[in-house]
């Protein structure tokens, strides 16, 4: 992929988002009753149009650059697989952890989740380290938040009491 292509994709998608946004906000937002001509939909619609205009300028700018400099500059794609691995690891953990919390409750899901992540994804082999990290985060945060600061974390639907 070259920089020109990356910009084309970026501004193209943003242009599309701007169009869909403008269409949605001008059709789905009900009129208000403030009596002013600035309705609830005015601000979002304006922003949608603004995004379209800016993306169009961006698109034009990148084409202009191509005409001037040619389409030679390539993006460094090395390490792409590691990067995708990083994305998958981050969002995989976040999603599984958040969903699990609703069922297992904060304490259990944190201890299990952190330990599993260290073991399977980070491939740590030191049991002491894994236990220390998962217990510090799970039990430590639980005690800090629930017991000390009075901020209640999800208890889960299994009724385990924590």
């Amino acid at each position: 992929m070259t920089i020109i292509w990356r910009d084309r994709v970026l501004f193209g998608i943003l242009l599309l988002i701007g169009a869909v946004w403008t269409w949605l906000s001008s059709t789905t937002i009900p009129a208000g009753y403030s009596g002013s001509f600035v309705a609830p939909g005015s601000f979002p619609t304006t922003l949608g149009v603004l995004l379209m205009v800016l993306s169009a300028i961006g698109l034009a700018g990148s084409e202009l650059k191509r005409v001037r400099n040619g389409d030679a500059e390539a993006i460094n794609m090395s390490g792409l697989s590691q990067e995708i691995w990083g994305i998958a690891a981050t969002f995989g953990f976040l999603i599984v952890y958040a969903v699990g919390m609703q069922y297992l409750g904060f304490l259990l899901v944190t201890v299990i989740g952190v330990a599993a992540f260290c073991l399977i994804v980070l491939r740590l082999r030191s049991w002491i380290l894994i236990a220390a990290l998962s217990l510090t985060l799970g039990l430590g945060l639980y005690l800090l938040m629930n017991k000390l600061l009075g901020v209640y974390l999800p208890a889960g639907v299994l009724g385990l009491g924590f």
Binding site: F93, Y97, Q102, Y152
Partner: peptide, 21 residues
């Protein structure tokens, strides 16, 4: 390891703001 802790804190922080999953 810090990254793991940050992920846990992100979830805890955004949850406890309004007690909302």
């Amino acid at each position: 390891l810090l990254a793991v802790a940050i992920m846990v804190l992100c979830v805890v922080g955004s949850y406890s703001l309004r007690n909302s999953m």
